[in-house]
Design a protein around this nucleic acid. Structure first.
Lengths: 261, 261
DNA sequence: TATCGGTTGGATACAACGTACACACGGAAG
DNA sequence: CTTCCGTGTGTACGTTGTATCCAACCGATA
């Protein structure tokens, strides 16, 4: 490894990887464990953590809770992940691993639409992925797609866009635009979904009823006449599928028009 | 203020708002303090917290650190905010309050473009707003625009869209699409910016150099040929302004085409 | 079979966090 | 002057992530 010189030198006593492990989570995990002790494994850790996050929310994923679920001591998982950052990274990659690999598409538009729909479905199935990307930005970095299963997303997108004959910058712009829209709109959708779930509101009317005391004050200020009017007039407020697909259609129409494909 | 009746009555002993305050942060803060003790005020609290978040990051905003900055005891701010959730809510609204109020626009497209640009600028100036919305989803709820200054964003957008003659659902879809794209793409931009800042990487080349050990393993697996190819070919990788504007142009083009406006 | 080195999981401990609770101060009202 | 209530203080508790040391275990070797 002649590439980068070690910045800080090595330390004599304890752990070597002080500042940064330098070798990433995925590279380290790829080398087979010299002694295959089957009790704990990265896959089992990720699986258990994801199960907790799916059922009890991301806040319930503490190192102790995870250890209890795995039937081991609180510090056991630290043999596989350097800290909670890497645990989140593992979880996010696990979630992205559930995306379908084969999405045959006849056109770039169909491929982008499929990618968007599947990303949304995955995010809705694991709502914590949106939070995770924002909370542990440095390592997890959902937006970067820097883990194996996350990288597979732009890889497939670029492959599908290749036949359109766009240059590299435009290709990446298309991907970024679509994934940006998906990420933003799904984040909003999940925020509303989480708000409902935390307060036990089942449908839209119940949500508006629960939000009423908050809203009535704000609307009473008279600062938001247009907002109030449109909110009253709208009939598809509670149709997130329509909202997502409508916006996505706009985005894809715009890409087609803007780049002439 | 005869507007809304008090839901829970008044409290005899200590704090009555056990389960939910029922009266929102904004309504509570609007009633003038009976005894104007000038040492602490919601605005001062928000200002100090935002200053800490801007300079040292959102993680540095702890109740103790905030109290130190304000020159008061750790628990002092709890007289104004019920917990850290509401502190974040206060901070986010403070940041949205810096958005320009007057954005004269000759067309809906110009108005939407202006909104997008200003939202991005505000988010880049206060990168923690993106995290805050995801982390404290229940109350802060950046995506909901449920605080005074946040609500002003859709209010202005709806006002600008009114002349286009779209129905309520379509108007809201347009707003949601644009704000969704902005939120998603800015989140990605900020994630990259944060990654750079935390590692002290100044430009794009330095970032790629720092990411090299991580990337070289992933690329070495041979699973991402298209990704590798396009990343190598692209020349505007380090031009976030171009990326944002290009995607935004697509979104606005798509809205115009899809709804015929 | 007995020994050994490296890996795995356990036990303990600590600093920092959010925040509940009871108290002290100080101006306004009577 | 007395009373009262809103405001800031002090103390303390439970929970979190995780550093550190230690014991148990595996397969290979002698």
């Amino acid at each position: 490894m002649p590439a980068s010189q070690a910045p800080t030198g090595d330390n004599p006593t304890g752990s070597d990887d002080r500042d940064k492990p330098q070798v990433s989570l995925w590279e380290r995990l790829a080398r087979p464990a010299p002694t295959p002790r089957t009790t704990l494994t990265p896959h089992r850790i990720a699986e258990a953590a994801v199960a907790i996050a799916d059922t009890e929310g991301l806040d319930a994923v503490t190192m102790r809770r995870l250890a209890t679920a795995l039937g081991v001591a609180p510090m056991a998982a630290y043999r596989y992940v350097s800290g909670k950052d890497e645990l989140i990274e593992l979880m996010v990659d696990f979630a992205y691993g559930q995306l379908p690999l084969d999405t045959p598409a006849d056109s770039w538009r169909e491929a982008m639409h499929s990618m968007a729909v599947h990303l949304r479905a995955m995010n809705l199935a694991h709502p914590w992925t949106v939070r995770a990307g924002a909370q542990w930005t440095v390592r997890a970095a959902t937006q970067f797609f820097l883990s194996p299963n996350q990288l597979a997303v732009p890889e497939r997108a670029f492959a599908a866009l290749a036949e359109s004959g766009l240059d590299a910058d435009t290709t990446m712009a298309v991907f970024r635009t679509v994934s940006g829209y998906v990420h933003g709109s799904v984040a909003a959708e999940i925020a509303l979904q989480t708000l409902r779930g935390d307060n036990g509101w089942s449908d839209g009317d119940e949500t508006r009823a629960g939000l009423a005391p908050r809203m009535s004050y704000l609307m009473g200020t008279g600062r938001y006449p247009n907002y109030q009017h449109y909110l009253h007039q709208a009939t598809r407020k509670d149709d997130p599928d329509w909202q997502f697909e409508t916006g996505l259609a706009c985005v894809l129409d715009g890409i087609a028009a803007h780049f002439g494909i």
